[in-house]
Design a protein around this nucleic acid. Structure first.
Length: 415
DNA sequence: TCTGGGGTCCTAGGACCC
DNA sequence: TCTGGGGTCCTAGGACCC
């Protein structure tokens, strides 16, 4: 490896460049769903546990040691490990546990970027005088999550988000690992390429087929070769990561760009009525979640999977963003109608719908209300009707607040 | 290995506009 | 009548993440 480093100009340049300090934490709860079950049911501790519903959603470390992983079919897990305990998921309990852990994150630093229900980046740079070194902060975070929430959490600490994420992956389970900024290459280069964030089975297969097995192998390659192999974005990204270049800051302002729901149907024939009923249930669920979140969206996407596991997505954009059930339902039904022949022929095994192009409902309300002022309310009634149609009844409360802020009364308020 | 449910990002072609 | 280049939006598909 040393010889490789010497011939690699990029790495040499990196080594000469001034390093930042390792102050980014990646905190990742271990086997999250399964750990919550073991926490709440002491008789499950020390035993192989999977949370499942057809496939393995999460496996305890006792089960992982037996070769069980996500998303393995449940029956396969039982073959590998006959004494495994299968627990149905309790998503409310996981959401609540996640909220408690994120409270501790936010109490640690204001710079928190959530990645999923069970992991986040924390920037603890500049907290030194108050809270200690990043390693001390990481250790105390782990203690607090265990004491207050009863869950094990692994923390990776590094100069960049990418390295912190890789570090927590290496440190699992129940660990803490600092990647010293002066020894990043030694840490990174021996790892298999599949450890890189963004390298999945397909990319790993392409790289392996060209004899590229470790990160060092990838790092020795010019960017143009990776771009030719993987495309512009992936190639550049991978090249940068292999040289531990990752300028992304911890971003506290990230918001979801789409909200969706899907359901697997199993094999066997389903009537068109059954499929339509399932879709209507999905539409209700998604639009309710949108309204609860105060988001509106424009692009309705249906997702289908067929008996042979081929997939298709069909999208249609609405003229205006909305969270109202009616326009989203009719758009979804129109897409379904256009696909009905293929569905009848190919056999549907999954149906899903999501709404993308999300914005805040306040933005939509504001856009419709903004042309009005205190002296121009002649068309306000019609506008309020349109507000209700597009965004649903709840938007009227927001419209009322916004109207007052702009100095006029919005009529037809909800009671 | 015969596959859940929630998402993100990237690519690419075509329509449309200037 | 035929032509260029750039930008944006829409749609479909694919890879990836937990």
């Amino acid at each position: 490896m040393t010889a490789r480093m010497e011939v690699d100009e990029d790495t040499a340049a990196d080594a000469a460049a001034p390093r930042g300090t390792a102050s980014i934490l990646h905190a990742d709860l271990d086997s999250f769903y399964a750990s919550v079950e073991q926490r709440d049911r002491p008789e499950l501790r020390g035993r192989p546990v999977i949370v499942g519903g057809g496939v393995v959603l999460a496996a305890s470390y006792e089960a992982k040691r037996r070769g069980v992983y996500t998303p393995m079919p449940e029956h396969r897990a039982r073959q590998l490990c006959p004494e495994v305990v299968v627990v149905p998921p309790r998503f409310d309990a996981y959401t609540e546990a996640s909220r408690a852990v994120f409270d501790i994150f936010h109490d640690t630093t204001p710079l928190v970027e959530g990645l999923s229900i069970d992991e986040a980046f924390l920037d603890v740079g500049g907290l030194g005088r108050v809270s200690g070194t990043p390693v001390e902060i990481g250790a105390s975070l782990r203690r607090r999550v265990l004491d207050d929430v009863g869950l094990a959490i692994t923390v990776g600490i590094a100069r960049t988000k990418f390295l912190a994420k890789v570090a927590s992956g290496v440190a699992k389970p129940d660990g803490l690992l600092l990647v010293d900024p002066d020894h990043e290459t030694e840490f990174l280069h021996p790892l298999p390429v599949g450890r890189l964030w963004g390298v999945g089975p397909v990319t790993e297969g392409k790289l392996n087929a060209r004899g590229l097995v470790t990160v060092a192998d990838v790092a020795a390659l010019g960017e143009e070769h990776l771009v030719a192999m993987l495309g512009v974005a992936s190639g550049r990204h991978l090249h940068a990561l292999a040289h531990h270049r990752d300028p992304r800051r911890v971003d506290t302002g990230r918001r979801r760009g789409s909200i969706g729901s899907q359901t697997a149907l199993g094999r066997g024939p389903k009537s068109a009525d059954t499929i339509e009923a399932l879709l209507l249930g999905i539409v209700d669920r998604v639009t309710r979640r949108m309204r609860n979140a105060g988001r509106i969206g424009r692009t309705v996407t249906l997702r289908f999977r067929y008996d042979d596991f081929s997939r298709a997505t069909r999208a249609r954009s609405l003229p205006h963003p909305t969270a109202a059930t009616d326009p989203i339902r009719s758009t979804a039904l129109a897409i379904l109608g256009a696909e009905s022949d293929h569905i009848a022929q190919a056999g549907l095994t999954l149906i899903g719908m999501s709404v993308g192009g999300l914005r805040d409902v306040d933005d939509g309300v504001e856009q419709l209300l903004l042309p009005f002022g205190p002296r121009d309310t002649s068309e306000l009634d019609a506008t309020v009707d349109r507000l209700r149609d597009r965004f649903g009844h709840a938007a009227l409360t927001r419209a009322s607040l916004l109207g007052r802020r702009h100095g006029f009364e919005v009529p037809k308020l909800p009671d």
